[in-house]
Design a protein around this nucleic acid. Structure first.
Lengths: 182, 182
DNA sequence: AATGATACTGAACAAATCGTTCGGTAACGA
DNA sequence: TCGTTACCGAACGATTTGTTCAGTATCATT
């Protein structure tokens, strides 16, 4: 990718991040973004079709590497050890605690649902691929899709709760909470 | 309330409902609403400060009576009978199955998260008031706020799953699923 | 160092939407 | 019957949107 392209794209993303932590996504205008990013209006539309596509591209860059590394490190292991000490979920919680890309500011803002929706799409795929490992822990005869849905939503809700409460607990404790409710 | 006011308000709400089932809330314009409602632009702004306030008022009317009746009928009983046959949650699921106010069309649309956010605010209050009844069912030493949050989110997610899957199960079955995971 | 391709600038543009204003009209409640 | 109130309809300036275009700067390649 051309260095000019990269720089413009980065500038737009950076400005977008800033503004997202300040106000609702719906209130943000393209004019505001390009002013803060200091790029021309035409440049913006050369990169992104609309404001919504900007969000989409932003989220993809934000989350893809989380799941890439999660999938890589856990692909060929037994993921769901019973005590949770080596679960993908612990891995994910730790990732958020490290606060890469300042992701916590975004997940703490009023726009958190925006990102968590994208996050959850990825999470569903992960759980789908790991369902056999989870199957053994299932106690009752719930439909598979209900069970999967419950795991994914419980994780996201646990994450939301953790962040909203200032992340006072350790990733290990949170993982324990989560494994307890599912 | 003046009959004229009521009629305008109703017309706006009705048009709003229609459009909400067709496109994203963010894409809806005031001009579109007043055209379908057949009211003047000034009339709209006499009733609602902005599009967001319209949504707020709409949701309040939509959900308040659900929880009013739920609270009334269950206030002085033992809510959480062990088999769930007389739980508030069953009551709520049944309410959705009856599809009052065509609420299912809204909860099936792409805007469902919008309504479920409001719904959940009310649900939290309900759970808060019923926490003592739930306390006994708590198996482990999780923080209270985490426990409450888990119940509320599990209910909403169960509801979403139910609707998304065409509501094939009976309210009793869904209640059983829900009580099983919490 | 020269060359052709590509990305950005900056300004301008029509179109859509916003939120407000106003005088005139009709429906309301008492 | 009468004073009040809500609606209409049209218009308004202000924003925002998405596009266009000619000129400039940067890029990779030879």
């Amino acid at each position: 990718m051309d260095r000019r392209q990269r720089k413009s794209r980065e500038a737009i993303f950076h400005a977008f991040t800033d503004i997202l932590s300040e106000k609702d996504f719906s209130q943000i205008t393209v004019g505001e973004v390009i002013a803060r990013a200091d790029v021309g209006r035409a440049t913006f539309y050369a990169h992104f079709e609309t404001k919504d596509f900007l969000l989409k591209a932003f989220c993809e860059e934000l989350f893809c590497h989380i799941f890439d590394t999660a999938a890589d490190t856990h692909e060929h292991r037994h993921i769901f050890s019973c005590d949770g000490s080596d679960s993908v979920f612990l891995h994910l919680f730790q990732h958020f605690q490290r606060n890469d890309n300042n992701i916590l500011a975004l997940l703490s803002s009023r726009n958190n649902e925006l990102f968590l929706r994208y996050f959850r799409n990825n999470l569903n795929l992960l759980i789908e691929s790991q369902l056999p490992n989870l199957q053994s822990r299932k106690k009752a005869n719930l439909p598979d899709s209900y069970w999967k849905n419950h795991i994914a939503s419980s994780f996201v809700e646990t994450l939301k709760w953790w962040i909203a409460n200032g992340m006072a607990e350790s990733p290990e404790t949170i993982t324990a909470y989560f494994l307890q409710v599912i």
